[in-house]
Each structure stands twice: as C-alpha cells, then as structure tokens.
Amino acid sequence: MKTSRSTRRVDDGAPWPVIVVATLTIVFFALPFIGLLGRTPWSDLFDVLGESRVRTALWLSIRTSVTSASASLLFGVPLAWVLARGRFPGRSAVRALCTMSMVLPPVVGGVALFFSFGRQGVFGRFLDDWFSFQFTFSVWGVILAQTFVAMPYLVLTVEAAIRQADARYEDAARSLGGSRWYVFRRITVPAIRPALVAGVVLAWARALGEFGATITFAGNFPGTTQTMSIATYLALDTDAREALVLSVVMIATSFAVLFGLRDRWMGAATGTTR
C-alpha cells in the first residue's frame, strides 16, 4: 500500500520535462565536485593539512571570516531595518548601493576599496596621516574586504524577514510602554532570529570564500593576509596537490554549512517557518 501511494504521488506531482531538466541541472552542479574529488590526492590529505603554511592560512581564514560575519551582523542589521521600515526618498537607490558589492566583480570591489580606504583614498589618507595606519597588507584589510562583499547577503536576508515580520507586534509592544530601542531588542530581533542566523552564516560563508577583493586590496602574506581562498588560488600555479586539498576543505565546509542551514534559509526566505 505504502509504496504504491508514494509512487502515485511522484507521478502526479512533477511533469516529466521538469524532472528531466532538473536531473540534468543536478548533474551539472555535481560534476565539477566529482571531478575535483576524483583528482584529490587523498593519501596526502593529512600531510598537506599538517603543513604550517596551510594551517596558517586556515587559521587566518577562520579568524577573519568570523570577524567579518560579526561585523556584518553588527552593521548590517540596522541597515536592513532602515531599508525595510524606513520611509525616505531614494531608498531603492540606497539598497542598490549597499548591496552592489555582491554582484560586482570582486576585483573591482578591491580597486574601489583602494580609492576609499587605501593609503591615498578619500578616507584612508586620514588614517595614514593621523594614526600611520593602513588597511592594505594588514589583517584589517582582509576583514574590510570580506565584510564589503559579505554583508549584503545578511542585509538582504534580514531585510526580507523584517518586511515579512508582523509590524503590529511592535505596535503592541510600544503601546505597552516599550521604547523603540527596547522594542527592537525584545520584539523585532527575536522575531527575525532565523533570518539572523541564516544571514550570518551566508555572510560568513561568503567571507570565507572571498578571494578577488581581498588579494586586490589587502595583498598576500602568510599569517597576515593569505587566506585559504588565496592560498588555494596561488597553490594552483605551484602545487596543484595542495590546491586540491585546500579546495576539498573549503567544499566540505561550505557543504556542511549550507546543508545545516537548509530549512532555516528556506524559512527565512519564504516566511513559512518561524
């Protein structure tokens, strides 16, 4: 009984052209990873991971990506709130501006960071004059570049959640005497918690994978600016074995994160799960 019923449901549910194309699409996404895993020198896996160069890059990536994700949360949530709830002219233009780095070629983002936060940039020159500080070639440059490209993922996720959240709960809280800040902390933030988790994880994953803006803006120095992504790219020219192992580590991490996130992200995106 059970089998026949589930079979019938599949027949009813999906038109065959959809199934065919969907299957091809799955294969399209799976093949590159199969190819990569097939070339991976599994026997060398732990040798390569044990190399201090690799461990340095891995540790730097973890530190910078966690910091960037935290910065995205701290600065991105207020921005998302303003974009979702604020009423001011040019809001769409502001949204486009603040999420553009997501679609720009990362190298362009890196060059743009030069003109703003670089030692001769409109803002960076003051940092250099007053504090002798420059982002480029420092770990802060990596964090800046990662945050620049990663934060839009959080902003868009959280903005959608705030839009979908029922603003009347905030009205109820205010009518009970909650200040706007108190209501934001006690009502708004808990209501969008799944989206916050999803947004932070997406931003973190993007920061972990960031390469173009980082190498363009921050440079490449082991322990300071050489992240996993940069090490992977550069190793491709010199030691393909190392590049493959690093790639496998990144793939495993990304898959684990997205797999663990599947319901939360879908829920936050469609508003079906609370």
């Binding site: 029922d166 009347r168 709960y169 009205d171 109820a172 809280a173 009518s175 009970l176 006690r186 009502i187 808990p190 209501a191 918690r193 609370r274």
Partner: peptide, 11 residues
C-alpha cells in the same frame, strides 16, 4: 491596547 488577534509575543 488589546489588539485584534491579540498579538501575544510568540517568543
């Protein structure tokens, strides 16, 4: 204010 649907904070 007692709201329509009551709007009790679900969390």
């Amino acid at each position: 204010f007692v709201f329509q649907d009551y709007l009790l904070f679900p969390n």
